[in-house]
Write a protein that binds this DNA or RNA. Structure first.
Lengths: 211, 211, 211, 211
DNA sequence: CATGAATGAGTTTTCATTCAT
DNA sequence: TATGAATGAAAACTCATTCAT
């Protein structure tokens, strides 16, 4: 009746298994770190033998690379939402802060991001993937900030890029904050975060006649 | 009788040896990461045998813990300078940004900090030390911001803490920025960083009647 | 009723499948060695799944054993040709050298033979098969050399056996020569090989009054 | 009193340990083959931990390479003896046969040689070493056979090389004979081996007017 | 008959740590 | 104090073999 199932390699099963492994690995990396988590633990978490994982991933390295790629796609869809949303750009971005803070102060996700960043220092492939991802994110952001509806559309490109760097620094810095001060909370953060971001999204001149 | 001072344990020599190991280990951790750097490489860099290191440190873990403690002391002296400096607090802090950016975009130091943070996720002792260090830093900063010469002396404690969190987020976020975008430079960053920090160091109301 | 012959086990198909596997395995063993060739590669080469091979062979070991048995049969037919051929025995055998050299300097076949011999050192079953094969070959040769048309028919059995050992040593030694000196060629070899073989096929006395 | 012993790395100890490992590995390779022998077994045989072996050899491969190099040196000294010995060359070489047969029918050495040859088929480094060794052996032999005291000094180089190939084939073929027919003995072999070698060491013409 | 997903024991290799000297 | 030889418990990865379908 249904699709001629199960003859020859089933790509759906293979895909499901890959996801199973990625989820398990992400989980283990968060808890134990990339080097701390052994293939044995990952396979136990994924509910399959260690040997079998190698039918889906060439190496442990390939697993973390896949995780990064999955994260890149997630980030893309977030920027796409900003682009698609109608209305005042500053408002949209400031409203997006809630979600951004949520994402960046999630202790699990943060631990994983940190692992990937630390790994980048000694694994060139990981570094390249992360930098590529970051580059695309900056470009997305730039295209938003120089767009017609942006209050910064007249600013120089150098200034735009500087603003982006600082905005990205704040957001990614939140990852570390949650590790260094586990008691912070979203609401508290936003009190100062929103004004700071607003500053970064509007022209400076009026505020800084001296600088 | 004579100055044959080196009989039995010489505390000065012991201290020098410890420093030698710490410097070597920091160097190796920066280049190879905590797990990537082996005791063999550290001992080679320190110019002493691997076995001998264990006369000064109980374990590899103890070494990174000592490095963290050393970094804490360094951070302390920086805050002390802010406290001791006369004049307008905002100006002092904004002027300090140059040095802060330098410190946080140094790719070597950044790599080491990242290693320590990632290690914190799986090593409770490291986490505790880092959190202790961060707590002290926040307290130092808080005492600056509620002091007599601060424009924020009337703000609520919750607001002060929120500002501190965000300021710390930006600065520590710079560590990640250098990894993700190796081409950023200090001068470029300051264009947007100074206004953002200024916002975080002065009362919000006047700037944000709408929010 | 009709010729729907393929219900249940078809011995012809089974035999074809076995041959398919043996050919593929021989090919892989030549290229990668017995341990270097995995069941995965063999199954790919044979055009059937790895699991299915186990319907025809109990183990990887059983495969190499079958290959040896097949080689034994091939060797038999060669000796049979010598026996069946009319004319002077020495001439027949010396003329057979061309084919023998061809066979023993074929780099592929040589690699496979070497694999089997090396495997014999650690696998008793393989050793037994090879020795059995060799024993039969020596017997065949002996029956040729003591036959009516042989110039050695009057020699002692010990001498006959010694001659056979040395002749076999030369021929099997060629396997190694091709590995150790890939640039040798058939024509060059025969210059010295034919006289040596002739010595081994004719009475010694006249040549060696001293020994 | 004695040599300033034991300060810093002791090269004598290191050398002894290397020999220990080489002996143990050779032993294991003979019994189990290169792939059959694990580092665990080798280390047990050598009386040291598996990990420690890696202080002396970079890999299991490096061990077999060292064994080959040691064998090369042994072969050299044998040829050197031939060169240094005074008297009739043919007699010297034929007298050397006893020792050669001993060496090539030693079941242990034979197993090891076979392993190395089989490994050469899949390990380029091993193949290169063995070929280099063989090349040097052929050159040594050639220089003997074209020397003043050789009955072959007038033969063409092609013929000399052909004779060498066949002589080497016989001798190396003996390695296989012992594996295929464990009951052969030195004395029996020599009955036919000496005449065959004599043929290969003296001019052909007088013996073979027909060929 | 035929598949290939799945296993798990086995492999080589690394490395923090100990200890006799 | 100082060495580096030595250990052994991991680690990542491979592969012959099994079995549900």
């Amino acid at each position: 009746m249904n699709t001629k199932t199960k003859r020859k390699t089933d790509p759906a099963l293979a895909h499901a298994r890959r996801e199973q492994v990625l989820a398990a690995a992400a989980d283990c990396f968060k808890r134990r770190g990339y080097h701390g988590a052994g293939m044995a633990e990952i396979s136990r978490t994924a509910g399959m033998s260690a040997g079998h994982i190698y039918n889906y991933f060439a190496s442990k390295e390939a697993i973390i690379e896949s995780i990064i790629e999955r994260d890149m796609e997630e980030m893309f869809s977030i920027f796409q939402e900003f682009e698609d949303q109608p209305g005042d750009l500053v408002t949209i971005l400031l409203d997006g802060l809630d979600h951004g803070v949520e994402r960046h102060t999630d202790i699990n996700q943060g631990a994983l991001d940190l692992e990937m960043l630390a790994e980048a220092a000694r694994n060139e492939k990981v570094a390249l993937l992360l930098r590529e991802s970051d580059k695309l994110a900056r470009e997305k952001m730039r295209s938003l900030l120089i767009g017609e509806r942006s209050p910064l559309k007249l600013a120089s490109m150098a200034e735009i890029d500087s603003r982006i760097e600082v905005m990205f620094a704040v957001m990614s810095g939140l990852l570390l904050r949650k590790t260094l001060n586990p008691s912070i909370n979203k609401a508290g953060l936003l009190v100062a975060l929103r004004p700071a971001m607003k500053t970064l999204l509007t022209p400076f001149e009026s505020l800084e006649p001296l600088n």
